[in-house]
Amino acid sequence: MTTENKGIVQRALAGLIETGDVNTLASFLSDDFLHHRSDATTSTKAEWLAAVHAALGPTAGMQVEILHLLADTDHVVVHSRRRLPDAGPEIVVVDVLRVADGLIAEVWEIIEPVAQTAVNAAWWEPARL
């Protein structure tokens, strides 16, 4: 199951990253797909695909580099670095995807702007507690 689920996510991302074709990605999502962000907002399949199209569609210009792809049972974790066009900010993203019945059912996304890494990494230092 782990290897199969990792393959599903790899194929979904490869189609999207290589072509910017959101329809390829859509074919890998369940009808009741949900996307969760760290700010507690949730998007439906249609809402999330519209956002992905705006960011990664053929004319959007965002570059995505997959750094790690890990899987355990029905969950697949993707660690990526994304660069926005026109010298826009660079972000690091961790997505946790849940696969059910051969389709991606949910995604939890955590985003960190690279420029804010030092500030975000210092919150736990003893002097700040």
Rank of each mutant, 00 (worst) to 15 (best):
109 E>R: 13
95 D>E: 12
51 A>M: 08
37 R>T: 12
11 R>T: 12
117 T>W: 10
61 G>E: 03
98 R>D: 04
18 E>Y: 05
78 V>G: 04
103 L>W: 06
111 I>G: 05
67 L>K: 11
12 A>E: 01
56 L>C: 01
30 S>T: 08
52 V>G: 00
28 F>N: 05
120 N>T: 05
101 D>I: 07
5 N>F: 04
76 V>Y: 02
128 R>W: 04
68 H>W: 05
91 I>S: 04
6 K>S: 08
13 L>M: 15
9 V>K: 01
20 G>F: 00
48 W>C: 06
38 S>N: 10
3 T>F: 09
59 T>K: 02
2 T>I: 10
8 I>M: 07
60 A>C: 06
72 D>N: 11
100 A>K: 14
92 V>N: 11
11 R>G: 06
60 A>T: 05
79 H>K: 08
1 M>Q: 10
118 A>H: 04
43 S>E: 13
109 E>F: 03
21 D>W: 03
38 S>C: 08
114 V>S: 05
77 V>C: 15
50 A>G: 07
73 T>M: 13
53 H>L: 04
87 A>Q: 12
49 L>Q: 04
61 G>A: 02
17 I>W: 01
7 G>S: 14
67 L>E: 12
106 E>H: 06
102 G>P: 11
74 D>C: 06
71 A>I: 07
82 R>H: 12
116 Q>T: 13
118 A>R: 08
121 A>Y: 03
43 S>V: 00
112 E>G: 09
44 T>C: 13
99 V>I: 11
96 V>R: 11
33 F>Y: 15
82 R>E: 15
9 V>N: 00
18 E>F: 02
69 L>G: 01
111 I>Y: 03
26 A>P: 07
83 R>N: 12
124 W>V: 11
13 L>S: 07
35 H>R: 13
48 W>M: 01
50 A>V: 03
96 V>L: 13
120 N>Q: 10
81 R>M: 03
69 L>A: 04
29 L>R: 08
35 H>T: 06
32 D>R: 07
83 R>K: 15
84 L>A: 13
97 L>Y: 10
57 G>N: 02
100 A>R: 15
78 V>L: 10
51 A>N: 03
35 H>P: 05
44 T>D: 10
64 V>R: 08
42 T>E: 13
13 L>P: 02
5 N>Y: 07
109 E>A: 11
32 D>Q: 09
68 H>S: 10
88 G>F: 01
33 F>K: 06
107 V>H: 02
71 A>C: 08
72 D>W: 03
40 A>E: 14
51 A>V: 06
81 R>E: 01
30 S>C: 01
105 A>E: 15
63 Q>L: 09
57 G>R: 00
31 D>K: 15
101 D>P: 09
127 A>D: 10
63 Q>S: 10
39 D>R: 10
24 T>N: 09
7 G>R: 14
55 A>Q: 07
52 V>N: 02
83 R>C: 11
12 A>P: 02
59 T>V: 01
95 D>R: 06
79 H>A: 05
88 G>C: 03
61 G>Q: 00
23 N>W: 08
98 R>P: 03
28 F>Q: 02
33 F>P: 02
93 V>Y: 06
17 I>A: 01
85 P>Q: 04
85 P>N: 03
38 S>V: 12
1 M>N: 10
73 T>G: 14
22 V>I: 14
35 H>A: 11
9 V>F: 00
37 R>N: 14
15 G>F: 07
